[in-house]
Amino acid sequence: MKITSIERFVLETIENEAKTFKEILTESGLQENVCFNTLQALVIKNIIATNGLHYFINKNLPREMVEKINSNRFKKQESMELIENFLNTSADDFVITKVALNDKDQKIFRAMLKNLDSFVKDCHLKTKKEVFYKDRTLVFWGMAKTENIIKEMVG
């Protein structure tokens, strides 16, 4: 069982709470009918449940189902989709570069990324109740050896 990126948006909007349609609509930033159709699809898939007024994530989802939904394969596909749409909307803000880093610089850079990771996680925990899902900032980072990328591309 896989979920679409739009379904993921809705699930992440609901998170561990019970939310009304209006709340999900406002917080997700989706168009009304897209939000409605997505909620219906998630209810049919039994991933979310509703008591008529509130929607909430089904706590009784089988473990295998949760693992499948959150599998690396699907997360990779969603990530590619997010980055594609990031490039379609904010290409000027995208930085990707092949940098010459010696071992020492690599260690420093990894430490900086770790700090960035902690900072971002702390910010998220601190302000997630105040910031609507649609107003969250999409950030991504990573590093890899160019050789490995080339090997992957060329085979």
């Binding site: 679409t4 990126s5 739009i6 009918n33 897209v34 997505t38 699809a41 596909q77 590619m80 989709e81």
Partner: peptide, 21 residues
């Protein structure tokens, strides 16, 4: 295939919006 399937699934949700109106 995965890429096209995702596009189709997203399109289905969005198109349902248009045809309903």
């Amino acid at each position: 295939i995965s890429y096209i399937e995702r596009k189709l699934e997203n399109n289905k949700i969005i198109k349902q919006v248009v045809t309903n109106h």
